[in-house]
Amino acid sequence: MASASKPLSGVTNGGAQKLCVGQVDSIMAVTKKKLVDLYTRTLKVRLFEEKVWDLFGENLVPGTLHLYLGQEAVAAGVTAALKKSDWVQSTHRGHGHVVAKGADMKAALAELLGKRTGSCKGKGGSMHITEFKAGVLGATGVVASGLPIAAGAALSCQMRGTKEVVACFFGDGASNNGTFGESLNMSAIWKLPVIWIVENNFYAMGTPITLTCPSQSIAQRAEAYCIPSCVVDGNNAVEVYEATLEAVKRAREGGGPSLIECQTYRMRGHSRFDPAKYRPKEEVDFWLSKDAVETIQNIALEKKALTKKEAKDIRRKLQKEVDIAADFAVKSEYPEPQEVLDDVFAEVA
């Protein structure tokens, strides 16, 4: 089997057009308040996912799980650049997107446990975790199926004359599906206010990207559709945030779509029972050394946006929120059998 380790050893800018400004200078420009925001979002997603992992260990989570552990900086950086009224389109690995966008963690955890208090009343679970009123268009079990929906939501923002934008998350694997080409093309010809966020974690289940992608980056593909793109360190929330900010500005001003490839890595296997033995140890160690939470915490401390004590206080507060949410989820009731028939159709007015 081809080794995936070579191009994975660090962030590459595989010939992609540069969209983001240089890293070091730009971090200076990010306000202290925003650094705290980025730290908080990244950590919140981490603590949420650790709780999910614990609940799963207690056998309270039915079905399968695609944990977001390791990729937190992507959801944090992207959503920190959005307004509440903006939209995100999620994937099968969606917990992080939903939590970072500001969904209610109680309803989110209850959903994962299949409870009637869940955001989808227990009808969706992990792969369809969604909170519409927080601006999440939906998580989807079909890889790459979110791209056309995101394009359409962006079309709607444009036609309704709002200044809303849509950020669409998808994986490296998804970028090999036909919807990628169809949707990028559509977004480019109509100058849609959409930001394509590739979460390149270098694997689609067990298949390394070296077996499925001929180019050094996925961002390169955007060029064929005349879409500006860049590659960023997806474990660095500040880099993700800055690239997104620029893309959001372009989208809001009518400048059309952008694509941001966030290079990142799963801390765990693909899904519930995957021990991820197919990944070389050096590669895993390299990425674990670039931990998303530590990275943003170090930047925030270094830039004096936070003191160690403040960082700890934030952690304690978030942990408490997550614990309360878990308690709520565990104590909630399962749906009643007759609820199986609810919500197939909306009532006709």
């Binding site: 268009l137 709607s156 036609m159 309704r160």
Partner: peptide, 21 residues
Amino acid sequence: DTPISENAIVGAALGAAITGM
């Protein structure tokens, strides 16, 4: 008028439908 992209035509219409169109 759209490109010949059936999956994206329906998907985009769907995305527009759930956001107010």
